[in-house]
Simulated scan of single mutants.
Amino acid sequence: MSVTIKDVAERLGVSAVAVSKALNDRKDISEKLKRKVRETARKLNYTPNSIAKRLVTNKSNTIGVFIFSRQEHTFSKDLGLQFLGGILEEANKNNYDIVIFSIDSDLLNKKSYIELCKERKAEGAIFTGLRLDDPHIGKIKNSTFPISIIDTFIEGKNVNFVSTDNKLGVRLALDYLWGLGHRRIAMINGHRNAQVSRKRLNAYRDYLKEREVYDERLVFRGDFTEDSGYQCAKKIMRLKELPTAIFVASDLMALGVIKAFKESSFKLPEDMSIIGFDNISIGEYIEPSLTTIGQDAVGMGKWSVRLILNEIKGIRLQKKCLLKPKLIIRDSCSIVNDGKLHKQLKERLE
């Protein structure tokens, strides 16, 4: 049989209530008794009944997690798993459990994310991949329990924001290309309903306008999928005057871009430099390996939990957390090729 609080109490000659208070670090119990209780519990191999404890304290020690992957089959290539790794690590460190909600459109027509969390008695919720056109944003803004949203800023009393410094990330990418001599730099952006798309586009536009080389005809819109990057690359190839480099707003789209240019006999990076944003693991193993802007996705996951736990504890140190990105140089960018494309390639494109 498993050891109970009563067994610990009998061994020490105190009440079960006193043992319970000592194990829960209550202020009305002396430090001396707390030490004795912890030591005895350890000797008896006593394991607290977490379910019973939560019933007594009316705390679930649970955080709900909603991960809206850009496409289900690309989740393993996406940042979702890295975010989740950071969330789980920080939650476990603080004795919290994670409930990952599967999203069914029929269910969401009847219940909001907030209602789903309340049904599971979650003390907070984390969202990543939340779109600006999501029908439940209003209820998220008015949530009565703490929320952390990765990459989407929403005003709300109990809403926290965690993201990469996107402006800095874009500038790191463009500084690198500029230093290699590139002046005609195209951009492939994500869909309009992702807040990061707007931030990265604004940063790209501002950077090139400052240098008086911005050309809106070099901006193309994808949807963060590999196929959309591929299709945008095909459109770029049809331009009368090609760019010498492309800044791609996600690594997944950059994979499609590289595939399209290689199929069309471009030599990479000699004929076209390509830089991504995210630092997904597969980018290191493709040919050429992808130069990119690395996000600390694990760190963002950790901070999303920390901000929620701070609110639960009544600590309001901050509601926003921006993590610094870093430039990761690999093989997909090179010094600008003033010699343009090889004659054979030109003929193929015409």
Rank of each mutant, 00 (worst) to 15 (best):
K209E: 14
G13H: 13
E31W: 00
I103R: 11
R171F: 02
M187N: 13
D25R: 10
L55N: 09
E155I: 05
I147H: 13
R217T: 15
L44W: 07
K53R: 08
G80L: 02
P48L: 13
R131P: 12
R221C: 10
T244I: 08
A260Q: 11
G301H: 01
V248R: 08
L44K: 11
P243N: 04
F266D: 02
E287Q: 12
A194Y: 02
E270K: 15
N337A: 07
L88Q: 11
Y214S: 14
F247S: 03
E31V: 00
I98V: 04
Y96C: 11
I308F: 10
A122I: 05
G85A: 04
D133L: 15
G13M: 11
N58S: 08
S105L: 10
I154V: 14
L341G: 09
Y207H: 05
I335R: 15
V298I: 11
M1V: 13
I308P: 13
N94H: 14
L218F: 09
N202S: 13
D338P: 13
N142S: 15
L177D: 00
A173H: 00
I5N: 05
I103T: 11
T4K: 14
G276R: 04
Y204E: 00
R38K: 10
L268H: 05
V99I: 06
D28A: 02
S289Y: 09
V17M: 06
G229H: 00
R316C: 09
K267Y: 08
A122F: 02
V65S: 02
R211S: 05
R316Q: 10
V8R: 04
K27G: 01
D104E: 05
I103G: 07
H73A: 11
K34T: 04
Y96R: 12
K34M: 04
I87E: 04
L55D: 12
S50N: 13
S289F: 08
I188L: 01
K118I: 03
V248Y: 03
